[in-house]
């Protein structure tokens, strides 16, 4: 977070194939639970990472939600009470006051990496 000089430390999390297309998995990263999603958008593969903790249910379940889009925003629906979170910003679509943390994430070779 404080790496203003862009000397970001990227850390290998898993192989790309460990997460199936258009689905999410949860990763343990610096003692935090991070929901990582691979999404195919118009034939282009994108990757997103947000915190796995659902602020509505207080359960760690975001990675198990269904991925989709609402008005051109790529979102995940939290599986218990179905609120949607913008995968790019962590913003909750139904409640402006609520958002979840996002993480820097990328493909590197055949690996998926997260950075603080």
């Amino acid at each position: 977070m404080s790496n203003i000089d862009q000397q970001v430390a990227w850390i290998d999390i898993c192989k790309s194939e460990d997460i199936l297309p258009n689905m999410g998995r949860c990763a343990l990263f610096e003692n935090e639970q991070v929901a990582i999603f691979r999404v195919i958008e118009s034939g282009v593969e994108k990757i997103y990472a947000i915190n796995n903790h659902c602020p509505f249910s207080q359960a760690n379940i975001i990675s198990r939600g269904i991925v989709g889009c609402l008005s051109n925003k790529t979102v995940v629906a939290s599986p218990l009470y179905k609120q949607h979170f913008d995968l790019a910003t962590g913003q909750c679509i139904e409640d402006e006051a609520i958002s979840v943390k996002t993480y820097a994430v990328r493909f590197e070779g055949d690996m998926i990496q997260l950075a603080a």
């Binding site: 249910s57 198990r64 991925v67 599986p79």
Partner: peptide
């Protein structure tokens, strides 16, 4: 079956009913 699994609610995906604590 791939790729049907990505369409399922978590209950169908994990073949169990998710409770309030996950």
């Amino acid at each position: 079956e791939k790729p049907l699994h990505g369409l399922q609610d978590t209950n169908d995906y994990f073949m169990g009913n998710m409770q309030k604590d996950g």
